[in-house]
Design a protein around this nucleic acid. Structure first.
Lengths: 189, 189
DNA sequence: TACTTTTCTTAAGATATCTTATTTTTTTTC
DNA sequence: GAAAAAAAATAAGATATCTTAAGAAAAGTA
Protein backbone atom coordinates (compact mmCIF):
# COMPACT_ATOMS: atom_id res chain seq x y z
CA UNK A 1 0.00 0.00 0.00
CA UNK A 2 2.55 2.57 1.14
CA UNK A 3 4.96 1.08 -1.33
CA UNK A 4 2.83 2.31 -4.15
CA UNK A 5 2.96 5.79 -2.66
CA UNK A 6 6.75 5.64 -2.33
CA UNK A 7 7.11 4.79 -5.99
CA UNK A 8 4.73 7.57 -6.84
CA UNK A 9 6.77 10.12 -4.88
CA UNK A 10 10.04 8.92 -6.37
CA UNK A 11 8.70 9.73 -9.80
CA UNK A 12 9.07 13.37 -8.84
CA UNK A 13 11.76 13.74 -6.18
CA UNK A 14 14.62 11.80 -4.63
CA UNK A 15 13.59 10.74 -1.19
CA UNK A 16 15.37 8.38 1.19
CA UNK A 17 13.59 5.51 2.89
CA UNK A 18 13.90 7.23 6.23
CA UNK A 19 12.48 10.47 4.90
CA UNK A 20 9.61 8.55 3.46
CA UNK A 21 8.98 6.98 6.83
CA UNK A 22 8.67 10.43 8.36
CA UNK A 23 6.30 11.44 5.62
CA UNK A 24 4.21 8.30 6.10
CA UNK A 25 3.90 9.00 9.79
CA UNK A 26 1.91 12.09 8.89
CA UNK A 27 -0.66 10.14 6.94
CA UNK A 28 -3.72 8.32 8.15
CA UNK A 29 -5.67 5.78 6.20
CA UNK A 30 -9.39 6.34 5.81
CA UNK A 31 -11.87 3.86 4.39
CA UNK A 32 -14.99 5.22 2.83
CA UNK A 33 -18.17 3.53 1.89
CA UNK A 34 -19.92 4.50 -1.33
CA UNK A 35 -21.52 7.94 -0.89
CA UNK A 36 -19.65 8.70 2.31
CA UNK A 37 -18.45 12.31 2.44
CA UNK A 38 -14.91 13.45 3.19
CA UNK A 39 -15.78 17.12 3.06
CA UNK A 40 -19.20 18.53 3.74
CA UNK A 41 -20.63 21.75 2.40
CA UNK A 42 -20.08 24.53 4.93
CA UNK A 43 -17.04 22.96 6.58
CA UNK A 44 -13.52 24.26 6.21
CA UNK A 45 -11.33 21.75 4.43
CA UNK A 46 -8.38 20.76 6.62
CA UNK A 47 -6.57 18.05 4.65
CA UNK A 48 -5.47 16.73 1.30
CA UNK A 49 -6.38 13.23 0.27
CA UNK A 50 -4.31 10.79 -1.72
CA UNK A 51 -6.50 8.11 -3.25
CA UNK A 52 -5.07 4.62 -3.00
CA UNK A 53 -8.14 2.86 -4.36
CA UNK A 54 -11.63 3.74 -5.48
CA UNK A 55 -13.00 7.01 -6.78
CA UNK A 56 -13.97 10.38 -5.32
CA UNK A 57 -15.89 13.25 -6.78
CA UNK A 58 -15.74 16.92 -5.91
CA UNK A 59 -18.99 18.75 -6.62
CA UNK A 60 -21.40 21.42 -5.48
CA UNK A 61 -25.11 22.04 -5.60
CA UNK A 62 -26.00 24.96 -7.86
CA UNK A 63 -28.83 27.48 -7.45
CA UNK A 64 -31.25 25.22 -9.25
CA UNK A 65 -30.42 22.38 -6.89
CA UNK A 66 -28.43 20.42 -9.45
CA UNK A 67 -25.16 18.68 -8.67
CA UNK A 68 -22.22 20.08 -10.61
CA UNK A 69 -19.19 17.83 -10.60
CA UNK A 70 -15.94 19.76 -10.87
CA UNK A 71 -13.52 16.83 -10.63
CA UNK A 72 -13.11 13.18 -10.18
CA UNK A 73 -10.18 11.59 -8.42
CA UNK A 74 -9.00 8.02 -8.86
CA UNK A 75 -6.02 5.91 -7.77
CA UNK A 76 -2.82 7.91 -7.35
CA UNK A 77 -4.44 11.30 -7.42
CA UNK A 78 -4.49 14.01 -4.78
CA UNK A 79 -7.84 15.61 -4.18
CA UNK A 80 -8.87 18.47 -1.96
CA UNK A 81 -10.63 21.81 -2.09
CA UNK A 82 -7.58 24.05 -2.35
CA UNK A 83 -9.57 27.24 -2.02
CA UNK A 84 -11.09 26.20 1.28
CA UNK A 85 -7.89 24.51 2.49
CA UNK A 86 -5.48 27.35 1.83
CA UNK A 87 -7.74 30.35 2.34
CA UNK A 88 -9.46 28.75 5.34
CA UNK A 89 -12.92 29.52 4.07
CA UNK A 90 -16.02 27.31 4.33
CA UNK A 91 -16.36 24.96 1.42
CA UNK A 92 -19.39 24.86 -0.80
CA UNK A 93 -17.76 21.96 -2.57
CA UNK A 94 -18.42 18.45 -1.36
CA UNK A 95 -15.97 15.56 -1.58
CA UNK A 96 -17.71 12.23 -1.73
CA UNK A 97 -16.92 8.62 -2.51
CA UNK A 98 -18.38 7.41 -5.82
CA UNK A 99 -17.54 3.84 -4.82
CA UNK A 100 -15.81 2.10 -1.92
CA UNK A 101 -12.64 4.14 -1.58
CA UNK A 102 -9.46 4.23 0.43
CA UNK A 103 -7.52 7.44 0.93
CA UNK A 104 -4.49 8.64 2.81
CA UNK A 105 -5.26 11.81 4.69
CA UNK A 106 -2.62 14.50 5.02
CA UNK A 107 -3.75 17.27 7.35
CA UNK A 108 -2.67 20.73 6.28
CA UNK A 109 -1.20 21.56 9.71
CA UNK A 110 0.89 18.41 9.48
CA UNK A 111 2.05 19.37 6.02
CA UNK A 112 3.30 22.76 7.19
CA UNK A 113 5.27 20.95 9.91
CA UNK A 114 6.52 18.46 7.36
CA UNK A 115 7.79 21.27 5.12
CA UNK A 116 9.99 22.39 8.01
CA UNK A 117 11.29 18.91 8.75
CA UNK A 118 11.83 17.81 5.15
CA UNK A 119 12.12 20.88 2.94
CA UNK A 120 12.23 18.83 -0.22
CA UNK A 121 8.54 18.00 0.28
CA UNK A 122 8.00 21.61 -0.67
CA UNK A 123 9.39 20.64 -4.05
CA UNK A 124 7.21 17.58 -4.28
CA UNK A 125 4.01 19.47 -3.67
CA UNK A 126 5.10 22.21 -6.03
CA UNK A 127 5.42 19.62 -8.75
CA UNK A 128 2.10 17.99 -7.89
CA UNK A 129 0.44 21.39 -8.03
CA UNK A 130 2.00 22.13 -11.40
CA UNK A 131 0.77 18.86 -12.81
CA UNK A 132 -2.68 19.33 -11.36
CA UNK A 133 -2.81 22.76 -12.90
CA UNK A 134 -1.76 21.48 -16.30
CA UNK A 135 -4.47 18.83 -16.21
CA UNK A 136 -7.04 21.51 -15.48
CA UNK A 137 -5.73 23.76 -18.24
CA UNK A 138 -6.02 20.98 -20.74
CA UNK A 139 -9.55 20.34 -19.64
CA UNK A 140 -10.55 23.97 -20.00
CA UNK A 141 -9.08 24.08 -23.46
CA UNK A 142 -10.91 20.91 -24.38
CA UNK A 143 -14.23 22.26 -23.22
CA UNK A 144 -13.71 25.66 -24.78
CA UNK A 145 -13.17 24.43 -28.27
CA UNK A 146 -15.81 21.74 -28.56
CA UNK A 147 -19.53 21.22 -28.69
CA UNK A 148 -21.22 18.99 -26.12
CA UNK A 149 -21.22 16.15 -28.61
CA UNK A 150 -17.49 16.42 -29.30
CA UNK A 151 -16.68 16.75 -25.61
CA UNK A 152 -18.67 13.62 -24.87
CA UNK A 153 -17.24 11.53 -27.70
CA UNK A 154 -13.72 12.77 -27.04
CA UNK A 155 -13.99 11.90 -23.38
CA UNK A 156 -15.22 8.34 -23.80
CA UNK A 157 -12.56 7.72 -26.42
CA UNK A 158 -9.86 8.96 -24.07
CA UNK A 159 -11.21 7.31 -20.91
CA UNK A 160 -13.22 4.22 -21.89
CA UNK A 161 -12.51 2.30 -18.68
CA UNK A 162 -13.33 5.21 -16.41
CA UNK A 163 -16.64 5.82 -18.16
CA UNK A 164 -17.65 2.29 -17.21
CA UNK A 165 -17.02 3.01 -13.56
CA UNK A 166 -19.32 5.93 -12.93
CA UNK A 167 -23.04 6.50 -13.42
CA UNK A 168 -23.91 8.28 -16.62
CA UNK A 169 -25.58 11.18 -14.90
CA UNK A 170 -22.31 11.96 -13.13
CA UNK A 171 -20.44 11.92 -16.40
CA UNK A 172 -23.03 14.30 -17.85
CA UNK A 173 -22.60 16.67 -14.93
CA UNK A 174 -18.81 16.56 -15.26
CA UNK A 175 -19.00 17.27 -18.98
CA UNK A 176 -21.45 20.10 -18.46
CA UNK A 177 -24.48 18.63 -20.24
CA UNK A 178 -27.80 17.24 -19.02
CA UNK A 179 -28.18 13.48 -18.54
CA UNK A 180 -31.02 13.51 -21.08
CA UNK A 181 -28.85 15.08 -23.70
CA UNK A 182 -26.04 12.67 -22.97
CA UNK A 183 -28.47 9.83 -23.40
CA UNK A 184 -29.51 11.30 -26.71
CA UNK A 185 -25.89 11.63 -27.84
CA UNK A 186 -25.17 8.01 -26.98
CA UNK A 187 -27.70 6.85 -29.54
CA UNK A 188 -26.56 9.00 -32.42
CA UNK A 189 -23.81 7.24 -34.37
CA UNK B 1 10.10 48.61 -10.68
CA UNK B 2 11.88 45.76 -8.96
CA UNK B 3 10.67 47.18 -5.69
CA UNK B 4 7.16 46.31 -6.62
CA UNK B 5 8.28 42.75 -7.28
CA UNK B 6 10.06 42.55 -3.94
CA UNK B 7 6.92 43.58 -2.11
CA UNK B 8 4.98 41.06 -4.12
CA UNK B 9 7.35 38.25 -3.16
CA UNK B 10 7.35 39.23 0.50
CA UNK B 11 3.62 38.75 0.57
CA UNK B 12 4.32 35.04 0.32
CA UNK B 13 7.78 34.27 1.73
CA UNK B 14 10.46 35.88 3.86
CA UNK B 15 13.32 36.84 1.62
CA UNK B 16 16.40 38.90 2.45
CA UNK B 17 17.52 41.81 0.33
CA UNK B 18 20.56 39.87 -0.81
CA UNK B 19 18.51 36.83 -1.78
CA UNK B 20 16.24 39.08 -3.72
CA UNK B 21 19.23 40.50 -5.54
CA UNK B 22 20.22 37.03 -6.62
CA UNK B 23 16.68 36.37 -7.78
CA UNK B 24 16.60 39.64 -9.70
CA UNK B 25 19.79 38.76 -11.47
CA UNK B 26 17.94 35.90 -13.13
CA UNK B 27 15.32 38.18 -14.60
CA UNK B 28 15.42 40.19 -17.78
CA UNK B 29 13.09 43.00 -18.67
CA UNK B 30 11.24 42.79 -21.98
CA UNK B 31 9.21 45.54 -23.55
CA UNK B 32 6.46 44.53 -25.90
CA UNK B 33 4.52 46.55 -28.35
CA UNK B 34 0.82 45.93 -28.78
CA UNK B 35 0.32 42.63 -30.64
CA UNK B 36 3.91 41.51 -30.18
CA UNK B 37 4.16 37.81 -29.33
CA UNK B 38 6.11 36.33 -26.43
CA UNK B 39 5.34 32.77 -27.37
CA UNK B 40 4.54 31.62 -30.87
CA UNK B 41 2.47 28.61 -31.84
CA UNK B 42 4.76 25.64 -32.48
CA UNK B 43 7.57 26.86 -30.23
CA UNK B 44 8.48 25.28 -26.92
CA UNK B 45 7.91 27.70 -24.08
CA UNK B 46 11.14 28.30 -22.16
CA UNK B 47 10.26 30.95 -19.59
CA UNK B 48 7.72 32.38 -17.19
CA UNK B 49 6.72 36.00 -17.42
CA UNK B 50 5.91 38.36 -14.61
CA UNK B 51 3.89 41.29 -15.88
CA UNK B 52 4.97 44.63 -14.46
CA UNK B 53 2.69 46.72 -16.66
CA UNK B 54 0.25 46.20 -19.48
CA UNK B 55 -1.76 43.15 -20.43
CA UNK B 56 -1.07 39.80 -22.08
CA UNK B 57 -3.41 37.21 -23.44
CA UNK B 58 -2.87 33.49 -23.83
CA UNK B 59 -4.92 31.99 -26.65
CA UNK B 60 -5.03 29.48 -29.46
CA UNK B 61 -6.62 29.18 -32.86
CA UNK B 62 -9.28 26.48 -32.98
CA UNK B 63 -10.21 24.19 -35.88
CA UNK B 64 -12.59 26.76 -37.28
CA UNK B 65 -9.87 29.37 -37.26
CA UNK B 66 -11.30 31.30 -34.31
CA UNK B 67 -9.16 32.69 -31.53
CA UNK B 68 -9.95 31.16 -28.16
CA UNK B 69 -8.59 33.15 -25.25
CA UNK B 70 -7.75 30.97 -22.25
CA UNK B 71 -6.34 33.65 -19.96
CA UNK B 72 -5.47 37.24 -19.56
CA UNK B 73 -2.59 38.46 -17.46
CA UNK B 74 -2.23 41.92 -16.00
CA UNK B 75 0.11 43.71 -13.57
CA UNK B 76 1.55 41.42 -10.90
CA UNK B 77 0.57 38.19 -12.55
CA UNK B 78 2.73 35.36 -13.76
CA UNK B 79 1.87 34.01 -17.16
CA UNK B 80 3.27 31.12 -19.15
CA UNK B 81 2.19 27.95 -20.90
CA UNK B 82 2.93 25.47 -18.11
CA UNK B 83 2.19 22.45 -20.25
CA UNK B 84 4.73 23.45 -22.88
CA UNK B 85 7.21 24.77 -20.33
CA UNK B 86 7.29 21.77 -18.02
CA UNK B 87 6.64 18.96 -20.45
CA UNK B 88 8.85 20.52 -23.11
CA UNK B 89 6.29 20.13 -25.85
CA UNK B 90 5.52 22.57 -28.67
CA UNK B 91 2.92 25.10 -27.71
CA UNK B 92 -0.27 25.61 -29.64
CA UNK B 93 -1.02 28.45 -27.27
CA UNK B 94 0.15 31.93 -28.15
CA UNK B 95 1.14 34.61 -25.67
CA UNK B 96 0.62 38.07 -27.03
CA UNK B 97 0.51 41.65 -25.79
CA UNK B 98 -2.98 43.15 -25.79
CA UNK B 99 -1.46 46.57 -25.18
CA UNK B 100 2.04 48.00 -24.62
CA UNK B 101 3.39 45.67 -21.95
CA UNK B 102 6.46 45.21 -19.82
CA UNK B 103 7.38 41.80 -18.40
CA UNK B 104 10.17 40.23 -16.42
CA UNK B 105 11.34 37.05 -18.05
CA UNK B 106 12.43 34.11 -15.90
CA UNK B 107 13.89 31.34 -18.01
CA UNK B 108 13.03 27.85 -16.81
CA UNK B 109 16.68 26.69 -16.85
CA UNK B 110 17.54 29.67 -14.66
CA UNK B 111 14.74 28.80 -12.30
CA UNK B 112 16.03 25.28 -11.81
CA UNK B 113 19.41 26.75 -10.96
CA UNK B 114 17.78 29.26 -8.65
CA UNK B 115 15.97 26.50 -6.77
CA UNK B 116 19.37 25.03 -5.97
CA UNK B 117 20.85 28.33 -4.85
CA UNK B 118 17.87 29.58 -2.89
CA UNK B 119 15.68 26.64 -1.93
CA UNK B 120 13.00 28.84 -0.48
CA UNK B 121 12.11 29.95 -4.00
CA UNK B 122 10.70 26.46 -4.32
CA UNK B 123 8.23 27.51 -1.67
CA UNK B 124 7.45 30.76 -3.42
CA UNK B 125 6.59 29.12 -6.69
CA UNK B 126 4.62 26.43 -4.94
CA UNK B 127 2.46 29.13 -3.42
CA UNK B 128 2.11 31.00 -6.72
CA UNK B 129 1.05 27.76 -8.37
CA UNK B 130 -1.51 27.08 -5.65
CA UNK B 131 -2.99 30.52 -6.05
CA UNK B 132 -3.04 30.28 -9.81
CA UNK B 133 -4.81 26.96 -9.53
CA UNK B 134 -7.40 28.34 -7.15
CA UNK B 135 -8.13 31.22 -9.52
CA UNK B 136 -8.68 28.73 -12.33
CA UNK B 137 -10.90 26.54 -10.17
CA UNK B 138 -13.08 29.48 -9.30
CA UNK B 139 -13.37 30.36 -12.93
CA UNK B 140 -14.40 26.85 -13.94
CA UNK B 141 -17.02 26.80 -11.23
CA UNK B 142 -18.31 30.16 -12.38
CA UNK B 143 -18.63 29.03 -15.97
CA UNK B 144 -20.16 25.70 -15.07
CA UNK B 145 -23.06 27.07 -13.14
CA UNK B 146 -24.10 29.96 -15.32
CA UNK B 147 -25.61 30.80 -18.67
CA UNK B 148 -23.71 33.03 -21.10
CA UNK B 149 -25.78 35.97 -20.00
CA UNK B 150 -25.01 35.44 -16.31
CA UNK B 151 -21.33 34.86 -17.01
CA UNK B 152 -21.16 38.09 -18.95
CA UNK B 153 -23.05 40.21 -16.44
CA UNK B 154 -21.19 38.66 -13.51
CA UNK B 155 -17.85 39.35 -15.15
CA UNK B 156 -18.42 43.00 -15.92
CA UNK B 157 -19.75 43.57 -12.41
CA UNK B 158 -16.65 41.96 -10.93
CA UNK B 159 -14.13 43.54 -13.33
CA UNK B 160 -15.53 46.82 -14.62
CA UNK B 161 -12.14 48.51 -15.10
CA UNK B 162 -10.62 45.54 -16.91
CA UNK B 163 -13.54 45.31 -19.32
CA UNK B 164 -12.76 48.87 -20.42
CA UNK B 165 -9.22 47.88 -21.28
CA UNK B 166 -9.78 45.14 -23.82
CA UNK B 167 -11.71 44.92 -27.08
CA UNK B 168 -15.13 43.38 -26.71
CA UNK B 169 -14.43 40.54 -29.06
CA UNK B 170 -11.61 39.40 -26.79
CA UNK B 171 -13.91 39.46 -23.81
CA UNK B 172 -16.43 37.40 -25.75
CA UNK B 173 -13.78 34.84 -26.60
CA UNK B 174 -12.62 34.65 -23.00
CA UNK B 175 -16.18 34.15 -21.77
CA UNK B 176 -16.90 31.52 -24.37
CA UNK B 177 -19.56 33.36 -26.39
CA UNK B 178 -19.59 34.93 -29.83
CA UNK B 179 -19.00 38.68 -30.16
CA UNK B 180 -22.41 39.01 -31.81
CA UNK B 181 -24.13 37.41 -28.88
CA UNK B 182 -22.18 39.56 -26.45
CA UNK B 183 -23.28 42.61 -28.36
CA UNK B 184 -26.85 41.40 -28.13
CA UNK B 185 -26.52 40.83 -24.36
CA UNK B 186 -25.16 44.32 -23.83
CA UNK B 187 -28.39 45.81 -25.12
CA UNK B 188 -30.80 43.74 -23.07
CA UNK B 189 -31.38 45.40 -19.69
C1' DT C 1 -7.92 65.17 -43.19
C1' DA C 2 -8.89 61.29 -45.60
C1' DC C 3 -8.11 56.46 -46.05
C1' DT C 4 -7.72 51.86 -44.33
C1' DT C 5 -8.36 48.60 -40.95
C1' DT C 6 -10.41 47.04 -36.91
C1' DT C 7 -14.19 46.66 -33.92
C1' DC C 8 -19.07 46.77 -32.89
C1' DT C 9 -24.06 46.46 -33.94
C1' DT C 10 -28.18 44.58 -35.83
C1' DA C 11 -31.31 41.17 -37.36
C1' DA C 12 -33.15 36.87 -39.45
C1' DG C 13 -32.85 32.16 -39.68
C1' DA C 14 -30.61 27.87 -38.02
C1' DT C 15 -29.34 24.56 -34.41
C1' DA C 16 -27.50 22.66 -30.22
C1' DT C 17 -28.98 21.85 -25.94
C1' DC C 18 -32.35 22.06 -22.18
C1' DT C 19 -37.01 21.15 -19.88
C1' DT C 20 -40.47 18.48 -18.62
C1' DA C 21 -42.81 14.34 -18.28
C1' DT C 22 -43.30 9.44 -18.86
C1' DT C 23 -41.59 4.78 -19.33
C1' DT C 24 -38.09 1.29 -18.99
C1' DT C 25 -34.08 -0.69 -17.04
C1' DT C 26 -30.79 -1.47 -13.53
C1' DT C 27 -29.22 -1.51 -8.87
C1' DT C 28 -29.86 -1.64 -3.96
C1' DT C 29 -32.01 -3.13 0.14
C1' DC C 30 -34.52 -5.91 3.22
C1' DG D 1 -35.96 -12.79 -4.56
C1' DA D 2 -39.44 -9.16 -4.16
C1' DA D 3 -39.96 -4.45 -3.27
C1' DA D 4 -38.06 -0.04 -3.41
C1' DA D 5 -34.95 3.19 -5.11
C1' DA D 6 -31.87 4.89 -8.45
C1' DA D 7 -30.45 5.42 -13.11
C1' DA D 8 -31.23 5.54 -18.04
C1' DA D 9 -33.99 6.14 -22.24
C1' DT D 10 -37.31 8.54 -25.07
C1' DA D 11 -39.69 12.24 -27.11
C1' DA D 12 -41.97 16.79 -27.87
C1' DG D 13 -41.70 21.44 -27.29
C1' DA D 14 -38.99 25.49 -25.62
C1' DT D 15 -34.96 28.51 -25.66
C1' DA D 16 -30.26 30.08 -25.50
C1' DT D 17 -26.79 30.76 -28.45
C1' DC D 18 -24.64 30.60 -33.02
C1' DT D 19 -24.25 31.73 -38.12
C1' DT D 20 -24.24 34.58 -41.67
C1' DA D 21 -24.24 38.85 -43.74
C1' DA D 22 -24.32 43.63 -44.00
C1' DG D 23 -23.72 48.19 -42.39
C1' DA D 24 -22.08 51.66 -38.77
C1' DA D 25 -18.70 53.30 -35.72
C1' DA D 26 -14.23 53.72 -33.99
C1' DA D 27 -9.32 53.51 -34.17
C1' DG D 28 -4.99 53.57 -36.48
C1' DT D 29 -2.19 55.36 -40.22
C1' DA D 30 -0.46 58.05 -43.91
Amino acid sequence: MDDNLLQYIRRYIDISDSEFLVFSSYLSTLNLKKREQLLRSGDICRARYFITSGCLRLYYIDQKGHEQIMHFGIENWWLTNYDSLLNKIPSHLIIEAVEKTQVLELKEVSLQELYRKIPKMERFFRIIMERTYIATQRRIEFMYSMSGEEIFKGFIDANPEFVQRIPQYMLASYLGITPEYLSFLRKTP
